[in-house]
């Protein structure tokens, strides 16, 4: 199956909580440790303590592995919501979560402004589900309208029904991506302001509003495909890496992700 790890590689630390003892990988660090090495691709997962309800760690792990197997030095950094957002990141990740943690994450990220500065200087970002909603100007949590980060001109409100199930869509042709596939589980509906482009056109499921799904703007991708969206969409992972390093990446062996994609797309065709 996968390439054997070569010398010097330590896989990113896997989930077992955020206890310091489980954070010993040499290529992994917590915010506030020594500065990152200058040459590594730095992947920053924000608010894992609040926004990690649906296997969100997967996106960090997948990006790190896909960089590593191409020989790109990579470093993953987990930053809790009560820690400052580091500025040296190349790819920033925000995941999904319940209403209470989502509202708290918005407050803390707004107070810190570090993510705002990072994307303003052109950093790449993948924001998922609750994380997608909160980069907009407003969202609903626990029945109240909450101020988002205002990074993009999008607003989210409540839909009549909860959207739960397979979500398939055709990506904006400019992104040159194959069919997107994921699982959605959200009560929100999201509206893009003028000048913003949806990530994709929905073929199965709900996404933003039943017609469009997600957003892409500059090097920011937002999506309702929740949790480990990159597991089923390796081309999207590679797009993020290529944006972050400023050059295209070579293909790698995607036998298993492609079999997974084929199976999920066949399942929704019934």
């Amino acid at each position: 199956m996968s390439t054997e790890p070569t010398s010097g590689y330590a896989p990113p630390p896997e989930p077992s909580g955020f206890a310091p003892a489980s954070r010993s990988g040499p290529r992994h660090r917590a915010a506030g440790d020594d500065p990152a090495s200058e040459s590594a691709l730095r992947i920053v997962w924000l608010c894992p303590d609040l926004l990690s309800t649906y296997g969100d760690r997967g996106n960090m792990l997948i990006l790190a592995r896909r960089a590593y197997v191409r020989g790109i030095p990579v470093e993953t950094i987990e930053v809790r919501s009560d820690e400052p957002v580091p500025q040296e990141g190349d790819i920033y990740l925000l995941g999904g979560g319940e209403d209470g943690p989502q509202a708290l994450a918005a407050q803390r990220l707004n107070a810190n402004q570090g993510l705002h500065r990072a994307v303003a200087r052109g950093a790449t970002a993948l924001v998922v589900c609750a994380g997608y909603q909160l980069i907009g100007t407003s969202f609903f949590a626990k029945g109240a309208k909450c101020a988002g980060l205002g990074i993009l001109d999008i607003t989210s409100d409540r839909g009549a029904t909860r959207a739960v199930g397979e979500l398939a869509s055709e990506a904006d042709p400019a992104l040159n991506l194959p069919t997107l596939t994921g699982f959605e589980n959200h009560g929100g509906r999201t509206h893009l302001g003028p000048g913003l482009t949806p990530l994709a056109r929905v073929t199965t499921g709900v996404g933003n509003d039943g017609a469009t799904e997600g957003v892409w703007h500059g090097k920011i991708i937002g999506t309702y495909m929740h949790g480990p969206v990159l597991a089923r969409n390796p081309a999207l992972a590679d797009l993020l890496i290529s944006w972050a390093i400023g050059s295209p990446v070579a293909p790698i062996d995607d036998t298993w992700p492609n079999r997974l994609r084929a199976e999920r797309l066949a399942a929704i065709r019934g």
Binding site: Y54, G55, D56, R57, G58, V164, N185, G227
Partner: peptide, 13 residues
């Protein structure tokens, strides 16, 4: 449960 996202909450190492 229809969602397999939890697989990434488990460390299989």
């Amino acid at each position: 449960g229809l969602d397999t996202s939890w697989l990434y909450d488990v460390d299989f190492s």
